[in-house]
């Protein structure tokens, strides 16, 4: 019996030591990302192969997309765990900059990115953008009837047959903030109230919007280009509309990378950022999820049909980030969460 007890204690100690041994090592970098795992993980893997260093990553769940890891970074600020935050949109990165949680870094590879998509002080750099599009079920909506503006979501003709993602999360938050910034408080609120009156379905995520449209549960919905591309690749009967070509323009959101203050592995973190800003990374993301390259690449600018029709909306990302925080209480009221 004594030997059995000893064996059990040895097993427990070995397991616990094994678990404790699975901690940090010097040759690694910790990256938190709200870019979909299916796109970001292959990029991290390419970096691992190139550099021989390991990327330990945390991905967002679909429900809390873009904010779950953001809040984890804020919560961990006292004892930072992450080195790099690769955000699915610029506004979340600006929240961290506003909180002083970002360390400036001028990557040599950022030079290829147009200046409007990177900070002059090195705090953030944008690349591989997505656009907010209307995904239309072509079996339910004829060519002539296709919506042309996001305002069509509030058109009584489509009552109960359209969808948007929960505006408290993901890129929809930024889109809402961009509308508040562009239209002003009253117009934006009126638009959202009109959506509510028109029984717009509030999906848990943009991926859900894609599912609802692809399956024909709704006629069209507002989503991101990577989700729209996914639907096309799956062979769903869908088409893409770049909304508001004749007016406001289509919201374009670069993914953004920042170096976090107090990063435990700053050198490897800088190398990872350099890798993310390579033309080959933008090409990879174009191929994987139709992310639009912002710097010069050897690939075409988009794999999406009709991408040449895109007319970008003029956006001041700093202003949008401010709006995003300001309108949260109202959005929560609108969604029904106190």
């Amino acid at each position: 019996m004594r030997s059995k007890v000893r064996r059990l204690v040895v097993i427990t100690a070995t397991l616990l030591l094994g678990v404790a041994g699975c901690g940090e090592t010097a040759d690694e970098v910790v990256a938190y990302t709200s870019v979909d795992q299916v796109f970001s993980e292959p990029v991290f893997r390419a970096f691992e192969e190139e550099s021989g260093r390991r990327v330990r990553s945390v991905f967002d769940t679909e429900e809390t997309k873009s904010t779950g890891v953001l809040n984890r970074i804020i919560a961990e600020a006292g004892a930072p765990q992450a080195d790099v935050f690769w955000s699915g949109d610029p506004a979340r990165a600006f929240v961290l900059i506003g909180l002083g949680l970002v360390e400036p870094y001028f990557s040599p590879n950022a030079e290829r990115i147009p200046s409007q998509f990177r900070a002059g002080n090195g705090t953030w750099t944008g690349f591989a953008a997505r656009a907010r599009v209307l995904l239309v079920n072509t079996s339910l909506v004829g060519e002539a009837d296709r919506p042309q503006s996001i305002r069509d979501l509030a058109d009584p003709r489509w009552r109960g047959r359209t969808a948007i993602a929960n505006p408290l999360f993901g890129t929809t938050t930024m889109h809402a903030a961009a509308l508040f910034a562009a239209w002003g408080e009253d117009d934006a609120k009126a638009f959202f109230n009109a959506l509510e009156a028109n029984d717009v379905r509030i999906a848990s995520s943009n991926g859900e919007v894609k599912r609802l449209v692809a399956s024909g549960e709704v006629a069209f919905g507002l989503t991101d280009t990577d989700d729209a591309y996914g639907a096309i690749q799956e062979g769903a009967p869908v088409g893409i509309v770049y909304p508001d070509r004749d007016g406001l323009g289509t919201l374009v959101m670069p993914t953004v990378v920042v170096l976090l203050a107090g990063a435990p592995h700053p050198e490897t973190a800088r190398r990872l950022i350099d890798h993310l800003l390579l033309a080959s990374t933008e090409e990879k993301l174009l191929e994987l999820g139709a992310h639009i390259p912002l710097g010069a690449t050897s690939a075409s600018s988009s794999v999406l049909p009709g991408a040449e029709q895109l007319r970008p909306m003029a956006v001041d990302y700093t202003l949008v980030a401010r709006e995003m925080g300001r309108i949260q209480p109202w959005l929560r009221e609108w969604v029904g969460v106190r």
Binding site: T61, L70, N71, I74, L168, G325, Q328
Partner: peptide
Amino acid sequence: FARLGGIDY
């Protein structure tokens, strides 16, 4: 859980 993921956490 979702509230933990809100932007104004």
